[in-house]
């Protein structure tokens, strides 16, 4: 297992409505779960905590998360990920899904 934590600059979340947290994905082979919560610090950054079963890909994780934080206003959120070897495209998809659920409150 490899663990790392990093905050990425991001515009603050636009809305205070919606849910306090949202989850996307499942921990299983080639899959991951992404939990996005309000109340991350600081408010102009997306706080990320990653645990992955496949070590050695920290750089690509950081790139994917930085990219997401840049494109979506996710400042003040806390993202926690349990990963079991998901491909990068799935990481981005789950992030999007969890983020959408959080801001739109849809389930």
């Amino acid at each position: 297992m490899e663990k790392f934590t990093k905050a990425f600059p991001s515009k603050p979340l636009k809305t205070t409505a919606g849910k306090p947290w949202a989850l996307a994905g499942v921990v299983g082979s080639g899959n991951l779960e992404v939990l996005v919560e309000r109340g991350g610090r600081p408010s102009d950054a997306m706080e990320c905590h990653i645990e992955t079963s496949i070590p050695g890909y920290k750089a690509s994780w950081l790139a994917a998360l930085a990219d997401f934080a840049h494109h979506y206003p996710a400042g003040g959120t806390k993202v926690t990920i349990n990963d079991q070897g998901a491909p990068p495209v799935l990481v981005t998809l789950r992030l999007r899904q969890a983020y959408d659920h959080l801001v739109k409150g849809s389930k």
């Binding site: 921990v27 779960e33 645990e51 079963s53 349990n82």
Partner: peptide, 8 residues
């Protein structure tokens, strides 16, 4: 402890 991914 076993180094296996956990779930929330």
């Amino acid at each position: 402890q076993l180094g296996i991914p956990v779930s929330f």
